[in-house]
Simulated assay, not measured.
Amino acid sequence: MEINNQFITPMKPWTMGDLGTQRNERPQESQGALLFKDIFDNAVNNVKITQADVENKQYLLATGQLEDAHSLPIAESKAAISLNMMITLRNKALSAYTELIKMGG
Protein backbone atom coordinates (compact mmCIF):
# COMPACT_ATOMS: atom_id res chain seq x y z
CA MET A 1 0.00 0.00 0.00
CA GLU A 2 1.45 3.31 -1.10
CA ILE A 3 0.94 6.47 1.07
CA ASN A 4 0.03 9.67 -0.73
CA ASN A 5 2.21 12.41 0.83
CA GLN A 6 1.13 15.34 -1.29
CA PHE A 7 -1.36 16.57 1.34
CA ILE A 8 0.85 16.00 4.37
CA THR A 9 3.22 18.77 5.31
CA PRO A 10 5.71 18.34 8.13
CA MET A 11 5.23 20.50 11.19
CA LYS A 12 8.02 22.82 12.21
CA PRO A 13 8.68 23.71 15.85
CA TRP A 14 7.50 27.07 17.16
CA THR A 15 9.99 29.56 18.44
CA MET A 16 9.38 32.70 20.41
CA GLY A 17 10.28 34.70 17.31
CA ASP A 18 7.37 33.13 15.41
CA LEU A 19 4.94 34.35 18.04
CA GLY A 20 6.19 37.93 18.04
CA THR A 21 6.84 37.89 21.78
CA GLN A 22 10.59 38.17 21.93
CA ARG A 23 12.00 40.23 24.74
CA ASN A 24 12.02 43.99 24.06
CA GLU A 25 9.71 43.52 21.06
CA ARG A 26 6.35 45.26 21.18
CA PRO A 27 3.39 43.41 19.72
CA GLN A 28 1.93 44.98 16.62
CA GLU A 29 -0.76 47.50 17.43
CA SER A 30 -4.18 47.04 15.94
CA GLN A 31 -5.80 49.70 13.80
CA GLY A 32 -8.13 50.64 16.66
CA ALA A 33 -5.21 51.08 19.06
CA LEU A 34 -3.43 53.31 16.57
CA LEU A 35 -6.58 55.38 16.08
CA PHE A 36 -7.01 55.83 19.84
CA LYS A 37 -3.34 56.69 20.20
CA ASP A 38 -3.63 59.33 17.48
CA ILE A 39 -6.74 60.82 19.08
CA PHE A 40 -5.09 60.91 22.50
CA ASP A 41 -1.87 62.39 21.07
CA ASN A 42 -3.90 65.09 19.32
CA ALA A 43 -5.71 65.89 22.57
CA VAL A 44 -2.42 66.22 24.46
CA ASN A 45 -0.89 68.37 21.72
CA ASN A 46 -4.01 70.55 21.68
CA VAL A 47 -3.65 71.13 25.43
CA LYS A 48 0.01 72.08 24.97
CA ILE A 49 -0.77 74.47 22.10
CA THR A 50 -3.69 76.19 23.81
CA GLN A 51 -1.74 76.55 27.08
CA ALA A 52 1.21 78.05 25.20
CA ASP A 53 -1.19 80.51 23.54
CA VAL A 54 -2.56 81.53 26.96
CA GLU A 55 0.94 82.04 28.33
CA ASN A 56 1.89 84.12 25.29
CA LYS A 57 -1.21 86.31 25.61
CA GLN A 58 -0.61 86.73 29.37
CA TYR A 59 2.93 87.88 28.61
CA LEU A 60 1.69 90.29 25.97
CA LEU A 61 -0.93 91.68 28.36
CA ALA A 62 1.63 92.09 31.17
CA THR A 63 4.01 93.95 28.87
CA GLY A 64 1.28 96.14 27.37
CA GLN A 65 1.59 94.64 23.89
CA LEU A 66 -1.83 92.92 23.75
CA GLU A 67 -4.05 95.03 21.51
CA ASP A 68 -7.31 93.13 21.99
CA ALA A 69 -7.90 92.40 25.68
CA HIS A 70 -10.75 90.00 24.95
CA SER A 71 -8.42 87.48 23.27
CA LEU A 72 -6.91 86.41 26.62
CA PRO A 73 -10.18 85.15 28.18
CA ILE A 74 -11.04 83.43 24.89
CA ALA A 75 -7.64 81.68 24.88
CA GLU A 76 -8.11 80.69 28.53
CA SER A 77 -11.52 79.20 27.72
CA LYS A 78 -10.06 77.24 24.79
CA ALA A 79 -7.29 75.91 27.04
CA ALA A 80 -9.79 74.88 29.73
CA ILE A 81 -12.01 73.12 27.18
CA SER A 82 -9.09 71.23 25.64
CA LEU A 83 -7.87 70.17 29.10
CA ASN A 84 -11.36 69.01 30.10
CA MET A 85 -11.63 67.03 26.87
CA MET A 86 -8.31 65.31 27.50
CA ILE A 87 -9.34 64.47 31.08
CA THR A 88 -12.64 63.07 29.81
CA LEU A 89 -10.82 60.91 27.25
CA ARG A 90 -8.52 59.62 29.96
CA ASN A 91 -11.41 58.83 32.28
CA LYS A 92 -13.32 57.01 29.53
CA ALA A 93 -10.21 54.99 28.62
CA LEU A 94 -9.69 54.00 32.27
CA SER A 95 -13.35 53.10 32.60
CA ALA A 96 -13.21 50.92 29.48
CA TYR A 97 -10.01 49.29 30.74
CA THR A 98 -11.56 48.42 34.10
CA GLU A 99 -14.61 46.97 32.33
CA LEU A 100 -12.33 44.78 30.20
CA ILE A 101 -10.49 43.63 33.32
CA LYS A 102 -13.83 42.73 34.95
CA MET A 103 -14.81 40.69 31.89
CA GLY A 104 -11.53 38.82 31.83
CA GLY A 105 -11.38 38.00 35.51
Rank of each mutant, 00 (worst) to 15 (best):
M1S: 14
I49G: 04
G20N: 01
I49C: 08
S82E: 12
R90Q: 07
N42G: 05
E29T: 00
K48I: 14
P73C: 04
L60H: 11
K102E: 14
K92F: 12
E76G: 02
K102L: 03
N4M: 10
M16P: 00
N45R: 03
V44I: 15
G104Q: 12
E25P: 00
E76K: 13
N46I: 13
E76I: 04
L100Y: 09
Y97R: 10
F36T: 00
Q28P: 01
A62V: 13
Y97T: 07
D38Y: 06
K12E: 10
A33G: 00
Y59K: 14
I81L: 15
L60C: 07
V47D: 03
L61I: 11
Q22T: 02
V47E: 03
L72R: 09
L19Q: 02
M103N: 13
S71W: 06
T15K: 05
G20R: 00
K102H: 10
I101R: 11
M16L: 15
P27G: 02
E76Y: 01
T50Y: 11
A93I: 03
L35E: 12
A52K: 11
L34H: 00
K37W: 08
R90E: 08
I87N: 10
A79C: 10
Q22G: 03
K12V: 15
Q51E: 14
Q28V: 02
I49Y: 04
Q6W: 14
A52E: 14
V44A: 00
L60S: 08
M1I: 09
M11F: 07
D68M: 10
N45L: 15
M85G: 06
K37P: 02
I39L: 08
N91G: 09
E29M: 07
I101C: 01
L72W: 07
G64H: 05
L34T: 01
K37C: 11
S30A: 00
N84I: 05
L89T: 05
A93T: 00
E55G: 13
T50V: 12
E25H: 02
I39W: 04
L60Q: 12
D38A: 11
F36S: 03
D38R: 12
A43N: 05
G64Y: 07
L35S: 12
Q58W: 04
T98D: 11
S30M: 01
N42F: 04
Q31K: 07
L60W: 09
K92E: 02
I8R: 14
A93C: 04
E2G: 09
K37Y: 09
W14H: 05
G20C: 06
A96H: 00
E76Q: 15
I3S: 08
V47Q: 01
S71N: 14
K57H: 09
L66C: 11
Q65M: 13
S95W: 08
N91M: 06
N42V: 03
Q65E: 14
W14Y: 06
G20I: 02
L83F: 09
T9P: 01
I101F: 03
T98Y: 13
M86K: 03
I87Q: 14
H70F: 10
T21Q: 07
A80G: 10
L94K: 03
D18A: 04
I3F: 13
G104N: 04
A79S: 13
L60N: 13
K57Q: 11
V44H: 01
A52D: 15
G105H: 04
